[in-house]
Amino acid sequence: MTRLVGYTREVTPGAGTAADAAQLTLAGAERVFTDDGPAGATERPGLRECLEFVEAGDTVIVTSAAMVAPTAAQFLTVVSGLAGRGVGFRSLAEPALSTGTAVDSAEVFVALESLRRRLSSLQTRAGMATAASKGRRPGRPTVMTPERVAMAVELRDLGRPVTHIARVLGVSANAVQRALASKADQSSS
Rank of each mutant, 00 (worst) to 15 (best):
S105G: 10
A21V: 03
T63D: 11
P45R: 09
E147G: 15
T12A: 07
R137P: 00
K134D: 09
S133Y: 10
S91E: 01
D35A: 08
Q23W: 11
A41F: 01
V171M: 05
A18D: 12
R31T: 14
P38K: 02
G57W: 11
G135F: 11
F109N: 14
A69P: 00
P138M: 12
V110I: 08
A65L: 04
R137Q: 09
Q123A: 15
E43D: 10
E154N: 14
A19N: 03
G100C: 00
P45V: 05
A15T: 05
A18F: 11
T34I: 12
S182Q: 15
L51V: 03
E107V: 07
I165V: 09
L119Y: 04
R140M: 06
T130D: 14
A184N: 12
S105C: 00
S121E: 15
A15C: 08
A27L: 05
A15V: 04
L119M: 11
E147F: 13
A150R: 14
S188P: 01
P38E: 10
R148Q: 06
R44I: 12
P141C: 05
G86A: 13
A72D: 03
G139W: 02
V60G: 05
S105N: 13
V103Q: 12
A184W: 07
P161S: 00
D20N: 14
S121N: 15
G6D: 02
A106T: 14
T130P: 01
R148D: 07
G16I: 03
E43S: 09
V87E: 06
G14W: 09
E52T: 12
Q23Y: 09
P45A: 04
R156P: 05
P138T: 13
T101F: 14
S64W: 13
S120K: 08
A131Y: 03
V62Y: 09
V110E: 12
P146L: 01
R167W: 12
L4M: 08
A27R: 07
P70F: 00
